[in-house]
Design a protein around this nucleic acid. Sequence first.
DNA 1: TCAATCCGTATC
DNA 2: ATACGGATTGAC
Length: 720
Amino acid sequence: MGSDANDAVSEQLSLVREVASPRGRSRRPSTSTRSKVPSSVPQAAEVDPVARVLVEVGLPHLDRPFEYFVPASMADLAVPGARVKVRFAGQDVDGYVLARAAKAEHEGTLAPLRKVVSPEAVLTPEVLALSYLIASRYAGTLADVVRLAVPSRHAKAEKNLPMEASPAQKGAATSPRPAAPEPGPWGNYPAGTSFLRHLAAGDAPAASWLALPGQASDVDWPVALAVAAATCLAGGRGALLVVPDHRDVDRVDAALQGLLGAGQHVCLTADQGPQARYTAWLKVLRGHVRCVVGTRAAMFAPVHDLGLVAWWDDGDDVLVEQRAPYPHVREVLRARARLEGAAVLTGGFTRTTSVQRWVETGEVRSVCADEPTRRLAAPRVVVAGEGTDLERDGAAAHAHLPSAAWRAAKSALEHGPVLIQVPRRGYLPSLACQTCRAPARCARCHGPLALNSADSAPTCRWCGTAAAAFECASCGGRTVRSTVVGSRRTAEELGRAFPGVSVHTSSAGDVLRSVSGEPSLVIATQGAEPIAENGYAATLLLDAWASMARPTLDASEEALRRWLAAAALTRGASQGGVTVLCGAPMHTTLPLVEALVRWDPSWFAARELAERVELCLPPAVRMAQLVGGRVAVQRAVEMAALAESVEQLGPLPWTSAGSKADTVQMTAKESMPKIQLLLRVSLDEGPALTAALTRMKALRSARKEREPVGVRVDPMDGLG
DNA sequence: TCAATCCGTATC
DNA sequence: ATACGGATTGAC
């Protein structure tokens, strides 16, 4: 494991023990005498009459435990982890019992718990410890993180689910452990079987796995995840698998069903409905099952004896939680693995720079296939030029297809379906070097340059510096070109280019799961590609330039991720599969294109990370973002009393993601333009920065600052 | 001298 | 947030 966060971890653990230990004594001898209990209220419990309670008031400066006395009637119900209602500042609020104690630290009179909502210990010590770490990592409140970790109660589900595992499940739990499965897909990777062996033995191996493309059961990634989970279960420990979306959950679910049989795992997804969802979650909490597959909210599932955390496609932005404090699945599962001694498995067709950093610090080991294996499994990749060889006439001209792409599709349609991937609409306009097409970067802070309005000079989206004299860092070019994005071919146009072929479409909101092996054209936006039975005969990746020119930090990483995800649905070169990249700049050999052609995401990730290190960009540094009115942000920064070493980039006008670039956001009431300030520190100084931001938030809420100031750590996760 | 009001602080 | 206390202000 890397050393940068070890201190923070041990510090947090001791904090957790102090607060959560059932009989925990304070390090300092308590100066309080035994707390007085008003005579008008019920008798206190005889054993551990004090409950430390996390109260759910949404105020940062009240984000700490408060002590209540436990009435005798609740002595056995108010267990650590139980939901309670308490009187707080004159009103009834919800809370959780964090711990019971013999004596209070609070010197004044304790108020009684008003009610134990349910004796179900929904906030387990492990999840509580995890929540402390995540709150600290993201400068958020414990209450916010607990809200993410513990689903809201569904009383009927709680009542209907038996407390004890059913006889069959009980039998499974007490009978000899299930046998470890065959390695299956893991046999394709030199380090794969070793990973499984350590996993089964109860160790905590950590791996970044670069999956081979293909859907056959001896390579298919959902099968590989299921095998890892089953191996962990066979070793007597629980497993937690997180995947980006519901379709992925279904695929892993099917694979688990095949390996484990019925009733050994549960799925957790947002679209289950409250009762089904809470029932599934309770099965995990009560230990009926020890294996979970789900979407991002499952990352907090209270799996018993956790032995493996795994997640798929680290770069997918749906792995970022959309509620404060916006934690990434990667950080949550990494923290869980450390706390609970579990193995780590992060897989994908590509590797993000964040995971590459772990590989390079030795925190995780790379698990990937050797080059000959990759070459056979991956499709042959062809690069068609940007406009240079467009068909001038005939059907293909209508579809704006390069002739190489048209020919590949035409011949592939004799053997099976053809996938045509188009970029999503709505990318922000951005700037690139006119000569070499490298993204234009700010000379001062290396942020992305963009045009605020048609006639102004290019401006940095981070620090606001106007690039009066642009000079490209890669080739020295002095002119920028605007990359207008978002043109999308219609299914009709393509249909006309291939008369007589049936056409399917799949895009966000109307996603097609799979298509048959019959010849057809499948037009899908990025991320919505259906799976084809036996794989696509060919895949066309359209408008490469649009994917490459997005004005976000991770544009290249993201482009490769999306291309390889589509290309991975294509038959391997050994079966004639081909992928055609259309619309890539031909002037230079871009590493991005080279990585696709050679199917070498590991090499690309290392290059990208080296560049980030050089330019002091995440994940080589820690960043935080403040958003709000100009004065409020300025005052917030002063309150934070930041160290000298904290670099401030900006402020500059803030536009919300997805809004048009020239729309300046206003705060609701004052019609004040919002501004953004970025803070940058070394990774070592990350914990100090988040601590300062936490203090600042507490101070602001204690002083009842009116104007909101948004704080976001790792703002590049998800938004770029 | 007392009540109304403002401000700061604690909330167990 | 809401409640409370202490200080401050203003009218009798």
